[in-house]
Lab assay of single mutants.
Amino acid sequence: MTSCHIAEEHIQKVAIFGGTHGNELTGVFLVKHWLENGAEIQRTGLEVKPFITNPRAVKKCTRYIDCDLNRIFDLENLGKKMSEDLPYEVRRAQEINHLFGPKDSEDSYDIIFDLHNTTSNMGCTLILEDSRNNFLIQMFHYIKTSLAPLPCYVYLIEHPSLKYATTRSIAKYPVGIEVGPQPQGVLRADILDQMRKMIKHALDFIHHFNEGKEFPPCAIEVYKIIEKVDYPRDENGEIAAIIHPNLQDQDWKPLHPGDPMFLTLDGKTIPLGGDCTVYPVFVNEAAYYEKKEAFAKTTKLTLNAKSIRCCLH
């Protein structure tokens, strides 16, 4: 018999989150649709729960009410004593943790798909938090293969000092899905179709896995975050240069030392320094102006996964 890495157990509980950011409308629209008619997301033997994560922000069509829901799922915020004085999103995070967690427990949901849009030209993107997770690498390989020839990129946010504390991190297997470009507060049919297909293929993978299909060893190309880059700023902290036209919409493309990065209003080009080629992502993302992030630098690498098969009882 072929030796293989056996994944822990079959997958039982899956959640699909929309509206973690209330103005990213593809996930909101799909989740609302699936709450009314969820036939397309159901798979035999699998509990799939669509869920609106930040209903107040969705109602106002804004990213958040008090603070970013997708950055506060750490033990400090989840452990705060519940009171009306807490920011709305912290209270909501505790409610979500109660419903789908608790985080880092045996009772937490197996998989959470968190649906997002970006204003950046990132196409279909899967966000991975753990480079050693054979199950998710296999799932992402399946999704990428199923979507081809449509490109699907994998963004690895594993980093020693950049801690995200994402909404989906309460699950055993957290999956971020990011599709763009799409303006905030807008629905685009092409973007919706791409996100819908990503979810379909992900659920198909889980179904095949649960039925005992063995997935042979595989490898995927990923883009691992190195650092986030702020806009150049003046002495008052105001933005002093904008994304250069040569960099705009060039997510995932190589940016070499000396290539144009920013452009000042008086026409001066600010190039990339250093001696390493990087791959920019979230270029000129609207939501990241407040976070002082013009783009993120990534490096390209390959992740390998062992063969996996479900432990059938």
Rank of each mutant, 00 (worst) to 15 (best):
199 I>A: 03
217 P>H: 06
290 E>Q: 09
167 T>Y: 08
143 I>A: 00
141 H>T: 04
210 N>Y: 03
67 C>L: 08
237 G>P: 00
227 E>V: 02
108 S>R: 08
69 L>Q: 07
231 Y>C: 02
84 E>M: 07
269 T>L: 08
150 L>Q: 08
270 I>C: 05
173 Y>D: 03
92 R>L: 12
218 C>L: 04
129 E>W: 09
269 T>Q: 08
268 K>M: 09
133 N>D: 06
44 T>M: 07
59 K>V: 13
275 D>F: 06
8 E>M: 09
47 E>G: 12
90 V>R: 11
29 F>V: 06
92 R>W: 05
119 T>Y: 01
118 T>R: 11
248 Q>Y: 01
41 I>R: 02
305 A>W: 00
58 V>F: 13
152 C>S: 05
87 P>V: 13
283 V>N: 01
299 T>F: 11
17 F>C: 11
33 H>I: 04
208 H>P: 00
161 S>P: 13
269 T>H: 08
272 L>H: 15
13 K>D: 05
44 T>N: 14
48 V>A: 06
178 E>P: 03
308 I>T: 05
75 L>A: 11
175 V>F: 01
253 K>P: 00
241 A>Y: 02
118 T>F: 03
5 H>F: 08
152 C>F: 00
267 G>S: 06
38 G>I: 12
168 R>W: 08
274 G>H: 05
182 Q>Y: 02
24 E>F: 01
251 D>A: 02
66 D>W: 07
294 A>G: 06
156 L>G: 02
301 L>I: 09
131 S>I: 06
42 Q>F: 10
152 C>E: 01
11 I>D: 02
232 P>Q: 03
156 L>Y: 08
183 P>I: 01
173 Y>C: 09
104 D>H: 10
193 D>Q: 10
198 M>S: 10
140 F>C: 06
206 I>T: 07
279 Y>E: 01
162 L>K: 13
134 N>G: 06
97 N>M: 11
110 D>N: 06
238 E>N: 14
59 K>S: 14
106 E>S: 13
62 T>Y: 09
63 R>H: 10
50 P>V: 09
19 G>P: 01
120 S>I: 01
184 Q>R: 12
30 L>A: 03
149 P>W: 02
89 E>F: 04
30 L>C: 05
140 F>L: 08
211 E>R: 07
83 S>L: 11
120 S>K: 03
261 M>E: 04
313 H>P: 11
238 E>R: 10
171 A>P: 04
153 Y>I: 04
157 I>S: 15
59 K>I: 15
156 L>Q: 05
107 D>G: 13
107 D>I: 14
228 K>D: 08
157 I>Q: 12
114 D>V: 04
252 W>M: 10
112 I>H: 02
234 D>L: 08
230 D>Q: 09
156 L>P: 00
108 S>M: 13
56 R>Q: 13
114 D>T: 06
196 R>T: 04
312 L>V: 15
213 K>F: 11
109 Y>V: 13
75 L>E: 10
185 G>H: 04
244 H>R: 01
272 L>S: 07
150 L>R: 11
6 I>S: 11
88 Y>N: 08
54 N>H: 10
180 G>E: 00
94 Q>A: 06
124 C>H: 04
52 I>N: 00
194 Q>W: 12
112 I>C: 09
11 I>C: 09
275 D>S: 10
41 I>E: 02
74 D>H: 12
79 G>H: 11
45 G>N: 11
173 Y>K: 11
262 F>A: 00
182 Q>H: 03
107 D>P: 12
74 D>Y: 08
96 I>E: 11
24 E>H: 13
116 H>N: 07
212 G>R: 05
177 I>L: 07
307 S>L: 06
181 P>Y: 03
62 T>G: 07
109 Y>G: 01
183 P>W: 03
136 L>F: 02
127 I>P: 02
90 V>K: 08
246 N>R: 11
94 Q>W: 12
118 T>P: 04
180 G>W: 00
117 N>D: 13
249 D>I: 02
25 L>Y: 10
252 W>D: 02
302 T>K: 09
232 P>K: 02
124 C>E: 02
283 V>K: 01
59 K>A: 12
56 R>W: 14
238 E>F: 06
141 H>W: 04
283 V>E: 01
212 G>M: 05
294 A>K: 01
119 T>C: 10
100 F>I: 14
78 L>S: 13
95 E>A: 14
152 C>N: 00
20 T>F: 01
167 T>H: 10
275 D>C: 14
145 T>Y: 12
202 A>K: 00
216 P>N: 05
72 I>G: 14
190 D>T: 09
194 Q>D: 07
254 P>Y: 02
161 S>L: 10
150 L>D: 14
154 V>W: 03
290 E>W: 09
61 C>L: 06
258 G>M: 08
86 L>V: 09
34 W>I: 01
140 F>W: 00
160 P>L: 11
178 E>R: 14
302 T>I: 09
50 P>H: 02
93 A>F: 15
124 C>Q: 05
274 G>R: 03
178 E>G: 14
145 T>E: 07
185 G>P: 02
166 T>H: 12
126 L>E: 00
108 S>C: 13
162 L>S: 11
267 G>P: 03
107 D>Y: 14
299 T>W: 10
8 E>G: 13
223 Y>N: 07
45 G>P: 05
54 N>E: 04
233 R>P: 03
33 H>V: 04
295 F>P: 01
41 I>W: 00
200 K>F: 15
71 R>N: 11
90 V>D: 13
132 R>S: 08
222 V>C: 10
38 G>L: 07
47 E>D: 10
175 V>G: 00
57 A>R: 04
29 F>W: 14
40 E>W: 03
219 A>H: 07
305 A>R: 01
307 S>R: 10
293 E>D: 08
100 F>S: 05
264 T>G: 12
244 H>T: 03
24 E>N: 06
111 I>E: 01
279 Y>L: 01
262 F>G: 00
125 T>C: 10
250 Q>G: 14
40 E>R: 00
12 Q>S: 06
199 I>Y: 01
63 R>S: 11
191 I>D: 02
270 I>S: 03
187 L>V: 08
174 P>Q: 08
162 L>W: 10
51 F>S: 03
268 K>C: 15
218 C>K: 03
172 K>R: 11
122 M>P: 00
54 N>F: 04
244 H>V: 00
224 K>P: 03
272 L>C: 13
257 P>T: 04
268 K>V: 07
228 K>N: 13
42 Q>Y: 11
66 D>P: 04
19 G>I: 03
203 L>A: 02
171 A>E: 00
193 D>K: 09
171 A>R: 05
252 W>L: 11
63 R>D: 06
271 P>H: 09
43 R>G: 04
240 A>W: 06
44 T>V: 10
241 A>C: 06
150 L>A: 14
46 L>A: 05
226 I>G: 11
265 L>S: 11
47 E>Y: 12
27 G>H: 00
128 L>W: 01
234 D>M: 15
297 K>L: 15
116 H>G: 15
6 I>F: 12
55 P>I: 09
305 A>G: 10
79 G>T: 13
6 I>H: 14
64 Y>E: 13
312 L>I: 09
28 V>P: 09
171 A>T: 07
204 D>H: 02
139 M>I: 02
124 C>S: 07
72 I>Y: 08
144 K>I: 11
68 D>V: 04
131 S>K: 07
253 K>M: 11
248 Q>D: 05
216 P>V: 05
283 V>H: 02
85 D>N: 14
210 N>M: 06
110 D>S: 05
211 E>D: 12
282 F>Q: 12
186 V>Y: 02
199 I>C: 07
235 E>R: 08
84 E>S: 15
209 F>P: 00
25 L>P: 07
112 I>E: 01
96 I>A: 06
74 D>E: 14
221 E>A: 04
64 Y>K: 13
237 G>M: 05
59 K>F: 12
85 D>Q: 08
270 I>G: 02
82 M>P: 11
34 W>G: 03
77 N>E: 13
284 N>H: 03
292 K>I: 13
110 D>I: 00
120 S>H: 01
84 E>V: 15
145 T>P: 00
202 A>E: 00
4 C>K: 14
197 K>Q: 11
120 S>R: 03
113 F>Y: 03
163 K>W: 11
286 A>M: 13
152 C>P: 00
22 G>D: 08
34 W>V: 02
33 H>M: 07
289 Y>D: 08
286 A>N: 06
265 L>M: 15
82 M>K: 15
141 H>P: 00
185 G>Y: 00
93 A>D: 06
8 E>L: 12
44 T>F: 15
311 C>E: 14
308 I>G: 02
106 E>C: 09
85 D>H: 14
228 K>P: 14
260 P>W: 03
27 G>V: 02
166 T>R: 14
163 K>P: 14
256 H>Q: 13
107 D>V: 13
287 A>S: 14
90 V>M: 12
99 L>T: 15
